[in-house]
Simulated scan of single mutants.
Amino acid sequence: MDDQQLSRSLDSDDPAVGLRAVGALHRLAEVTEARYVALARERGWTWEQIGDALGVSRQSVHVKHGKAR
């Protein structure tokens, strides 16, 4: 789903269309979060700094992203 499709879908009054758009947003957020967490770790950020930036605990971000990949 490209940006224009996503924008139109979020304005839809059809719940099925809107919910698919929400799913696309969730997937985009997860991929984007993983990318920037990895970048932060490469640049020496601590789990606490990353958690603070995301508004979550260091433990929760470490559990989610701390596994060896």
Rank of each mutant, 00 (worst) to 15 (best):
M1Q: 06
M1T: 07
D2F: 08
D3N: 11
Q4L: 15
Q5D: 14
Q5R: 14
L6N: 02
S7V: 11
S7Q: 09
S7Y: 13
S9Q: 10
D11P: 01
D11L: 15
D11S: 15
D14Y: 07
D14V: 10
P15W: 08
V17I: 10
V17M: 05
V17N: 06
G18D: 01
G18Y: 11
L19M: 14
R20P: 00
R20G: 11
R20F: 13
A21R: 04
V22Q: 09
V22A: 12
G23I: 06
G23H: 10
A24M: 06
L25P: 02
L25Y: 04
H26I: 15
R27Y: 00
L28E: 06
L28A: 12
A29V: 12
E30G: 07
E30M: 14
E30L: 15
E30Q: 12
V31I: 13
V31K: 00
E33I: 04
A34T: 11
A34H: 11
A34Q: 14
R35E: 11
V37I: 04
A38P: 04
A38V: 09
L39G: 03
L39A: 11
E42H: 12
R43L: 14
R43Y: 06
G44I: 06
G44Y: 06
W45E: 09
W45Y: 15
T46G: 04
T46H: 07
T46D: 05
W47L: 08
E48Q: 14
E48F: 03
E48V: 01
E48A: 14
I50S: 02
G51N: 04
G51P: 00
G51L: 01
A53H: 06
A53L: 09
L54R: 08
G55L: 02
G55C: 05
G55I: 02
V56L: 02
S57T: 09
R58S: 13
R58Q: 11
Q59H: 15
H62D: 08
V63L: 08
K64E: 09
H65A: 05
H65D: 05
H65P: 00
K67L: 08
A68T: 10
A68V: 10
